[in-house]
Nucleic acid binder design. Structure first.
Length: 473
RNA sequence: GCCGGGGUGGCCGAACGGCUCAGGCGGCAGCCUGCAGAGCUGCUUUAUAUGGGUUCAACUCCCAUCCCCGGCUCCA
């Protein structure tokens, strides 16, 4: 019984797509005025889990994620650097794509850019004007008149009257008639420089909210199955999307609204303005594996705030290490006869895992299932009660889970995989000493290398080395 | 001010009326190892912010209090 928590209804609801077997999924993507930080990335890890789970359940997922490549901040940034808007946003778009790849996040089928859909937006604004949902201000900008939209505020449960009481709403500045009215089209002004489009609406650029209405409608139709975004988007962005879209089509815009909570750092929301963020690059540079970041961001339920700490990242990395070692143990399992069946364990784990994720992506329960399976099977291996065939079955099950989790296989390698000649020489010297059972020399070399952050581990397959992580900041 | 979400063991995090209060990390012990590390297993359980109430039974529901976070402004 697949169900999701719908922000509109404020409760879990059984999931039923519009069209049997197909899901129209729209996600609010990034505004590309800077590198994404891991708080931003949490939203996309969440969407990825959602998408992969839907696919696991046999749905064909039509996933669209927009890129906001024109807004106040991108224009400001571009002016500051003295480059074209495209040039400015391109590097952040590329970096974002790379981040997603490093986190094993599946690409959306379509990632439309706002600047490439001006025409569609203009068309929608014209419809709104025609239907009388908008007005033009003195400077030529066009605003959506929320008093004309009956259920404005239904998603965020906000009353428009109350909104005005909120301290920092600038009413007069742009000639809006009401504080909560929002821009559909912004008339060009000096600060915009060369960023403008000459359209039937005049010279200017689109408001922020209209792009999602235009692009979701174009690629997915009038009604979406699922729309995702961070909780900060509930108001005003998604509220406004609903108003625009439903005013235009007269149809329900979205059937299920799914919102992820924020990532905190030191008890506060991670955000660009607070300068308390880490990018994925920062974390990789400290020597962590990006897949550990995926695991960490994924392992707390998406509707719950959680705090990022290096301790928890470390814990995530260790947990993954344990899982991968487990897979290694399975591969090495060569017994001919299973003295105890694993079918029961597999069946139970499989059922529990699926039940958990069906229940609004209850990842904690799902991961608990995985770890329980690991422990039980490890016991069998220790007692030599697991055979090769049984091991294969377990491995197949985990691989199956990993279609959703995507944390087991790990192709990522830290950049510096080379040792200096001096260090290599020492390692060879130590190997010779060990062979001669000269433990004193061997241990001295190991200690010495450890001081320069190279950790040696003797394994049945020879000596292995790794770098000790260097923590910055 | 208005509207949400929370406060669980050394730390992170589940459960949300009763069936042993998941799981991870860390710590400790055993196995393994020349030693160390890694790995595996076991232990780490009189843990549910505080004070009342409802109930045969509350972490779970109700009331009050304290504290934390978020939204009300561009923001994942």
């Amino acid at each position: 019984m697949l169900q999701f928590y719908d922000t509109m209804m404020r409760k879990k609801r059984l999931f039923r797509p519009i069209e049997e077997g197909k899901v129209r999924l729209y996600s609010c993507g990034l505004t590309v005025n800077d590198y994404a930080h891991i708080g931003n990335l949490r939203a996309y890890v969440f969407v990825d889990l959602l998408r992969r789970w839907l696919e696991y359940r046999g749905f064909d997922v039509e996933h669209v994620m927009n890129i906001t490549d024109v807004d106040d901040k991108t224009i400001q940034g571009k002016q500051k650097e003295g480059v074209s808007l495209d040039e400015y946003t391109e590097k952040y778009i590329d970096a974002f794509a790379e981040d997603l790849k490093l986190l094993n996040i599946k690409k959306a089928k379509i990632t439309p850019k706002a600047t490439e859909h001006i025409e569609e937006m203009v068309r929608l604004v014209k419809i709104l004007m025609k239907k009388g949902y908008s007005y033009r201000s003195k400077d030529g900008s066009i605003y959506f008149d929320i008093s004309r939209f009956k259920n404005y505020g239904k998603l965020s449960k906000m009353k428009i009257g109350k909104l005005k009481a909120g301290a920092r709403v600038k009413v007069d500045e742009y000639g809006k008639e009401q504080a909560a009215d929002f821009a559909l089209w912004k008339a060009w002004d000096l600060d915009d420089g060369d960023v403008f489009w000459e359209t039937k609406l005049g010279k200017g650029r689109p408001g922020w909210h209209i792009e999602c209405s235009a692009m979701s409608m174009k690629y997915l139709g009038k009604t979406l199955d699922i729309h995702t975004g961070g909780v900060d988007n509930i108001f005003p962005h998604h509220e406004n999307e609903i108003a625009q879209s439903e005013a235009i089509t007269g149809k329900k815009f979205v059937n299920y609204w799914l919102h992820n909570e924020h990532l905190l750092i030191k008890g506060e929301r991670m955000g660009k303005s607070l300068r308390n963020f880490y990018t994925l690059r920062d974390i990789i540079d400290m020597g962590y594996n990006p897949v550990s970041v995926r695991f960490l961001l994924m392992s707390t339920h998406y509707r719950k705030q959680f705090s990022f700490t290096f301790e928890s990242l470390e814990a995530a990395e260790n947990a993954l290490h344990r899982l991968r070692d487990f897979m290694g143990r399975l591969d090495e399992c060569k017994n001919n006869e299973c003295t105890e069946g694993v079918e029961g364990l597999i069946k139970e784990a499989s059922q529990d895992f699926e039940d958990a994720l069906d229940d609004d992506l209850d990842i904690s329960r799902a991961l608990a299932t995985v770890f329980n399976l690991v422990r039980e099977v490890n016991k069998l291996i220790d007692m030599k009660k697991l055979c090769q065939a049984g091991a294969r079955q377990v491995r197949d099950l985990i691989r199956d889970f990993d279609r959703v989790l995507c944390v087991f296989s790990d192709s990522w390698q830290p950049k510096e995989r080379k040792l200096s000649n001096e260090v290599e020489r020492l390692i060879r010297k130590r190997e010779a000493a060990r062979k001669a059972r000269d433990w004193k020399t061997a241990d001295a070399i190991r200690d010495k290398l450890q001081k320069s952050d190279i950790i040696l581990e003797d394994t049945p397959n020879g000596v292995k080395w790794r770098k000790r992580r260097v923590k910055k900041r």
